[in-house]
Amino acid sequence: MKRICFISVVLACAFSISFAQKTKENKKSNSSVACNAEEQVNKCVQSLRPLGYKFLKSYKLEGNAAKPIEYQYTLSKGTTYFISIQPADPDAKLKVSLYDQDGRMVASSYNSAMKKFYPSIEMRCQRTGVYTIAFSHESKQDYCAASVLGFKR
């Protein structure tokens, strides 16, 4: 009897692990099919020209709220930078924050006082250095988005 119980427990564990893995794989594959970051990049690029910005870099964002997606870039003094974000879901609460080389936040697309999310930030850089561009999401769900960095003198 003990042996039967033991075998049942082992089988149940094996089944649940395999099921969990399959669910995870399916979820992952569904999310990659659903996320067309290319389309979001195109929308971001189109927003640059009317404002007089030139394209510099694009970021395709597929993530979840658990960890922000971070990139670093060297910004030059005297140059105005524009970072636009375009989530696939227009209601997504996605924000971009900019940190200087000392880790201090210099800009965020979320205004906590007004509880407002902006679709872009514009900053005239006054100090050349390596900055961190961090994207984060308020919801606990996976998200699909794109961001573009543009510049003008």
Binding site: K77, L98, Y118, S120, I121, M123, R124, Q126, R127, T128
Partner: peptide
Amino acid sequence: VEKDGQLVIEQGEKS
């Protein structure tokens, strides 16, 4: 500051 619906940052630190 908000200008024409856009968020504009004036960086305080300078080199």
